[in-house]
Design a protein around this nucleic acid. Structure first.
Lengths: 159, 159
DNA sequence: TATTGTTATACTCTATAACTATA
DNA sequence: TATAGTTATAGAGTATAACAATA
């Protein structure tokens, strides 16, 4: 056979690295009409699930340094998708909340993301895609990467 | 339940992106006694399987731009792990070949990589890890990422 | 003293353009 | 005219340090 592989193993590290880069780059491209970074989509998702969250907590959860978070939030705020409000219980913190426009944007982005994921994994059956996602989540959780938004202990948003 | 997830889906893109970054960063750290970049390990692997390969072909295969490849190879060459020889059949090309030291280094790195992968996936059973790798390879292949070294059509190395 | 948000800075990675030598 | 290797440069992305406000 002319194309029988000699080396079957460049390793999981290589696979994850290349696929991770590719997925993020392609998704960014798919989002280009929104002029947003994939990370900003993830930020909007977290704010929907955790209204009132602080920048530091958001940074910890998404593994983005708080200094890098500032610019990402600046842009989302200037475009009216979220607002920063002083947390009156701890005036060092900003409470981040989605605006109506932000929620609408997120709804639209979710469709884009769902379509992208379907396309990106089109070489797998639905069952395989589900299995892959489940395995990745197990590994991610073991490494402290949060893939779900936990119910947390009391964030008084407005009242 | 206090920590029941509200949002089960940050998406495959997020998972792959975060895990890819983490895996490469951690592996780089594991390799720190070698003072090499993970990409240089992959380069050595490719050269073992494809002696005489050109820089351009290597760049295409590993998705590293040829201008970025130069520095990676410079370092490996200056440390005696490989040599660049003019390809006499096409004098624009360099034929890359591992030295004895390079092969020894690669053997050692492969052990490091195997141990790292085992640790990185320690939250999975052996069967699950195998399944994960297989699924990732399917997706990678569908996206044109080469994870195996094909037998190719005639590279006369020396004769 | 320690923490949050911010700015400035540096360091790494990646992408582009231009040059040379070869074809 | 096009390609392989090289250099230089610019652009992201990430990490670190320092500062003001607050705890």
């Amino acid at each position: 056979m002319a194309d029988e592989p000699r080396n079957a193993a460049l390793g999981i590290t290589y696979l994850l690295g290349q696929l991770g880069n590719l997925a993020v780059r392609d998704f960014k491209n798919r989002m280009k009409s929104y002029a947003l970074h994939p990370r900003q989509y993830v930020i909007l998702s977290q704010l929907r699930d955790d209204p009132g969250i602080s920048q530091q907590t958001l940074s910890d959860r998404l593994l983005v340094h708080r200094s890098a978070m500032v610019g990402l939030l600046d842009e989302l705020e200037s475009r009216g998708y979220l607002s920063r409000e002083r947390n009156l219980e701890n005036r060092r913190e900003h409470s981040l909340v989605l605006s109506k426009d932000g929620r609408d944007l997120l709804d639209s982005l979710r469709e884009t993301a769902a379509t992208f994921e379907k396309d990106f994994l089109s070489s797998l059956t639905n069952a395989e895609a589900k299995k892959l996602k489940s395995l990745l989540q197990t590994v991610a959780t073991a490494h402290g990467i949060e893939t779900t938004t936990p119910n947390h202990e009391l964030v008084v948003v407005k009242q």
